[in-house]
Design a protein around this nucleic acid. Structure first.
Lengths: 212, 212
DNA sequence: ATTAATAGTATCGATTCGATACATATTATG
DNA sequence: CATAATATGTATCGAATCGATACTATTAAT
C-alpha cells in the first residue's frame, strides 16, 4: 500500500497572519494536547496516576537541577502552588519521586525521580501512541516542529511575564549535558550552543550568587 | 490570492528520532497547551466560563456543519459524552450557543454559536497573548508550524482509532468555504484544494447518504 | 419484527482545581 | 541589627470537572 500526502501551501500577498490562521494553530495545539492528555491518562491508570502526575514526571525527567522544585513545576503546569503541592505529595507517597531540601536555601525543595519514577518515564513518556506518531514524521520535520514550538513558547512567555534579561550561563534554567558539549534551557527546552549559553536570554532568572 | 501545490512524500528515515527529541516535543506541546488553557481561563472568567467552555466555543467557530454536534465536540475535547453534555448545557443556558435538531436524523443535535457566542470568539479566541505571540513569528513560520502540527495530528489520529478511508467530499468533516474556492477538513483543520477534496482521506467518516 | 448500534442526557462519587490562609526561610531596607 | 517585604512550600475548603454507569430515543441491521 503506497501513500502520498498532498499539502497545499497558502501564499498570500498580505504580510500579517490572518486571524483564521491563528485560531487554527491554537485549536491544533489544544486538540493535540487533549489527545496527549488522554493517552497519559491511559498510561498512568495502571499505576494509579492521573494525567497531571504523568505530566509532572515528564517535566522532572527533562528539567535541570535548578528547575526541579515545586515552584518550577507549578509554573510548568500553569496551576497554583497549593494544587501542585498536593500532586507532588501523591507522587511521593506512591514512591515515584523523592524530596530533598536544598543545602543553601532552607525554603527550597528538590524533587528527584526515584528508580520507580525513572522506570515509569522510560516506558511511558511520551505515551506509546505519541512516539509512534512522531515516527510517522521524518527527522527533519520533527526538529523543525520542535524549533517552531520553542519559538512560540518563548514569545508566549515574553508576553505573559516580562522576565529579566540575563546570560544563560548564570540563569537557573540553564542546563549542561554531560555527554557532549550541548547546553539547554530548562524552561524553554531550547538547545543552546556553547556560544549561545553566554548570550542574553530574555527568560533569564538570576541564579543565586553562591551557586555560580 | 495565489496558490502553490507542494507534494510531500512520506519516506521512512534512516536515522530514527531520538527518544529525547520526542519527549521534548511532547513537553513543549503540553507546556504551550497549559499556557493556552490558563489564558483561556482568564479570558473566560469575565463571562463566567471555564476553560473547557472556551475550548468548545473555539472549536464550534471552526468546524464544518457536520461537525458541530455534541459527539464531535466530545471527540475534540477528548472527554466523555456525559461530561461534554454538561458543558454544552451550561453554554446554552448562558446564551453562547443554540441547539437545533437535525431534520434528517432525530437523534442528532447541531450547536450554533449565538450572536453573543460569535462576539465572544471574535474578541477572545485565541486569547490576546496567544495572538500576540504568533505575531512574534513571521508568516512563513506560522504556516509551517500549522502544517507540521496538522501532520502530527493526522498521525496521532491514525494511531488512536483506525478510521476508514474515504473521499473528503463525502466525509462529514469536509468543509467548504463560502468566499473563495478553498476547502478544509473540519477535523484536522487541513486546507484542501478542490482536487484533494475528491481524494482519499484516512480520517474519513462517511456522511449519511441523503446528505451527499 | 427484533436486535444492535448511535446520539444524547442524567446522575453519582472521586478527584482536581483555585482561592485563601498559614508557616517558615531569606532578602531588602532603614 | 531589627523589621518589613518577599519567596517557597503546605493545609484546608468549597466549587467544578471528570469518568463511569445507567438510561431514553432514534436509526440501522438482520
Amino acid at each position: 500500500m503506497h501513500f502520498k500526502i498532498i499539502f497545499v501551501k497558502l501564499v498570500s500577498t498580505r504580510y500579517n497572519i490572518s486571524s483564521m490562521d491563528k485560531a487554527r494553530v491554537a485549536s491544533l495545539i489544544e486538540r493535540i494536547g487533549n489527545l496527549l492528555r488522554s493517552e497519559e491518562r491511559a498510561s498512568g491508570s495502571d499505576s494509579g496516576l492521573q494525567t497531571v502526575h504523568v505530566q509532572i514526571l515528564g517535566y522532572l525527567s527533562q528539567c535541570n537541577r535548578y528547575s526541579n522544585t515545586p515552584a518550577a513545576v507549578t509554573e510548568f503546569i500553569g496551576s497554583t502552588k497549593g494544587t501542585t503541592s498536593q500532586s507532588i505529595n501523591i507522587l511521593e507517597k506512591k514512591g515515584f519521586i523523592n524530596k530533598r531540601s536544598d543545602e543553601e536555601d532552607g525554603r527550597v525543595i528538590h524533587l528527584d525521580l526515584s528508580d520507580k519514577g525513572e522506570r515509569f518515564i522510560k516506558n511511558e513518556f511520551p505515551p506509546y501512541e505519541f512516539k509512534a506518531a512522531l515516527d510517522g514524521l521524518n527527522k527533519n520535520d520533527t526538529e523543525r516542529l520542535s524549533q517552531l514550538l520553542t519559538k512560540l513558547l518563548i514569545q508566549l512567555q515574553r508576553k505573559n511575564n516580562g522576565k529579566l534579561f540575563g546570560v544563560c550561563h548564570t540563569c537557573r534554567h540553564f542546563k549542561k549535558f554531560g555527554l557532549d558539549d550541548t547546553h539547554q534551557c530548562g524552561l524553554t527546552l531550547e538547545p543552546l550552543s556553547e556560544k549561545e549559553s553566554y548570550q542574553i536570554c530574555r527568560e533569564h532568572v538570576q541564579l543565586p550568587e553562591k551557586a555560580v
